[in-house]
């Protein structure tokens, strides 16, 4: 799948995806709406415009396809909504999110054989290593496609990331594009307050990566930056996009605070959120 949508069309998909996210989280009164809403534009751009892949049937090895790995697995409602809206599995399955016997586990898993998921994530800091491994397998197979990996900014506190960052640069894994969701928030407060790092690009550059800035909540800029990143890939270095987002983007009362990291809206809050998010593709 690789679409040629206008920015407005992609924004319409993102609006529906945001509706799906708040409805899914509300329905089970659990889940992580903040980061899911913040990264919605990125995942819509990747799955509905930029990545080239086969939606059906799903092939685990992804040979000849672009691959996306979600390292910060707690934004699973976003991943599920975007994948279903891209036709990887049925949109009607979103209603099962986090319920007993679902394939849409609280955090993404392969265990229930949900199409589109290639690795379990949730315990943080592991996705970039997995993405690097997939990128190596593509290199060995002379597969020209790209591996994308999304990480949270708080997640970079996990040391394993820096092992992978070091490895990927040293080994010129240049079919790998990492994206850090720089929303500045983590569960216990702002990232600045908890582990005080802001100079993400400097750190990646010091390790030997190419870096780009992106406004993760400006669809035009997202598509443009992802295209630019793809142009920079295959030039001997992995590429990192520092993606500025607002946690809770699209729902005014959820924005700009870590408080909506992992709590669900009540009925009134749901109604208020949905008023701000036009139903563009039909609710599940």
């Amino acid at each position: 799948m690789s679409g040629k949508h206008t920015v407005t069309q992609l924004q319409d998909i993102a609006s529906q995806v945001r509706r799906d996210i708040v409805r899914m989280v509300h329905a089970v009164q659990s889940g992580h709406p903040g980061g899911s809403l913040g990264c919605a534009d990125l995942l819509v751009a990747l799955y509905h415009e930029v990545m080239e892949y086969q939606a059906k049937p799903f092939n685990m090895d992804g040979k000849g396809e672009d691959i996306f790995i979600l390292s910060n697995g707690h934004i699973s409602p976003l991943l599920y909504s975007v994948m279903s809206r891209a036709g990887i599995f049925e949109v009607s399955e979103l209603v099962t999110f986090r319920k007993l016997n679902t394939r849409l586990q609280g955090h993404p898993a392969t265990h229930e054989h949900l199409e589109g998921v290639r690795i379990a994530s949730g315990s943080l800091g592991q996705g970039l290593s997995v993405a690097t491994g997939i990128a190596l397998s593509k290199r060995m197979n002379n597969d020209p496609k790209t591996v994308y990996c999304l990480m949270g900014d708080g997640e970079l506190e996990e040391g394993q990331n820096w092992e992978a960052i070091m490895f990927a640069a040293h080994n010129k894994v240049d079919n790998l594009i990492g994206i850090v969701d720089f929303n500045g928030q983590q569960i216990d407060g702002s990232t600045k307050e908890i582990m005080g790092f802001t100079e993400i690009k400097d750190k990646f550059e010091a390790f030997g990566w190419l870096t780009l800035d992106m406004d993760g909540n400006d669809m035009g800029n997202v598509v443009e930056t992802l295209t630019k990143a793809k142009g920079l890939s295959r030039h001997g270095k992995p590429v990192l996009i520092k993606m500025k987002t607002d946690m809770g983007a699209g729902v005014d009362f959820m924005m700009g605070s870590h408080e909506w990291h992992g709590i669900a809206p009540n009925n009134e809050q749901l109604a208020k959120a949905l008023e701000q998010l036009p139903e563009t593709l039909g609710d599940y």
Partner: peptide, 19 residues
């Protein structure tokens, strides 16, 4: 992989994913 076992296991999972 260098002295980085966590990354080694993660990359192995990725390589297995790629066949």
């Amino acid at each position: 992989t260098g002295i980085a076992e966590a990354n080694m296991i993660g990359m192995a999972a990725g390589l297995a994913t790629g066949g």
